[in-house]
Design a binder for these strands. Structure first.
Lengths: 141, 141
DNA sequence: CTTGAACCTCTAGTCACTATAGGGACTAGG
DNA sequence: CCTAGTCCCTATAGTGACTAGAGGTTCAAG
């Protein structure tokens, strides 16, 4: 019925140091310990950690997950807050897709135009060196 | 003909501490200094920094930029290397777009299905808590 | 010569982990 | 009971690409 951190890691696909890290930052409650100070988890821990993992997969940051967990713990509240968090994340994802699509286009153009001879006439290098282009913001990935 | 770090920052839209950082990690050569140890730059510095900035906007990492700069400095080489770096970046961008598109779909579904009443019946929270879903890799943005 | 903006170095903080060092605990077999 | 091997523990430092702050110096204008 209760098991080690390694077992929890296997069952949730979250690495052992990551689990300890989540405990340290207060995302996971400190579990009971054996006499020798080893952590022991139960089924509830799996559910909670799976929740966190799924939220991370969707790209929610730790603060957002903290908020989502506290909503899960208080199911009588309105879920407006959850909606707002998820909508904000959706907006971020859409922005990101848009800016990456622009990058893709520029990279493709660079690569297509390169005759691939000497660097001296390479479009890739030339494009980068060209200082007469639009200045968007930096890519973050 | 030569100017301060602040002026270089204004002309390239790269922040002053970032310029010093690039020098520290060896992307920019240490410029000459005034008697009082202040950096003085010339037009070439603008070109070099603009190149770096553009490459960063396209999401190339520092190591890739180091390689691209050294290609620019040796224009007699084949530009295969530049092509390979750019192609690798394009592949990354395409992967990223694909995985973000999947996230977008999942977030949209979550939000559409939420009747937005109490958290107890909120699809957003429920979806996250549902442990019977596909396990892709974590989103990195 | 004085003021104030811009410059200098150095250190630490960001995010969400990941890696390493140096040890202790638990389990299965002999 | 002993040992071997695997797992577990804490604590600290490192990642990438900056950004922020402290505390002090230099420059250009008036």
């Amino acid at each position: 019925m209760d098991f080690s951190i390694g077992e929890l890691a296997r069952r949730t696909q979250v690495k052992v140091p990551t689990i300890r890290y989540y405990e340290q930052i207060g995302l996971l409650a400190p579990p009971p310990r054996t006499e020798g100070q080893q952590r022991r988890y139960d089924k509830k821990s799996i559910a909670r950690l799976a929740f966190i993992r799924h939220a991370r997969e969707l790209g929610f940051n730790i603060e957002a997950i903290r908020a989502l967990l506290s909503l899960q713990d208080n199911p009588d509240q309105s879920c407006n807050v959850a909606d707002r968090i998820a909508s904000a994340r959706l907006a971020e994802v859409e922005d990101r897709i848009a800016s990456l699509s622009a990058l893709r286009t520029e990279l493709q153009r660079m690569l297509e135009e390169c005759a691939c001879g000497r660097v001296a006439e390479c479009r890739v290098i030339e494009t980068l060196a060209d200082n007469s282009h639009r200045h968007g913001r930096l890519a973050e990935s």
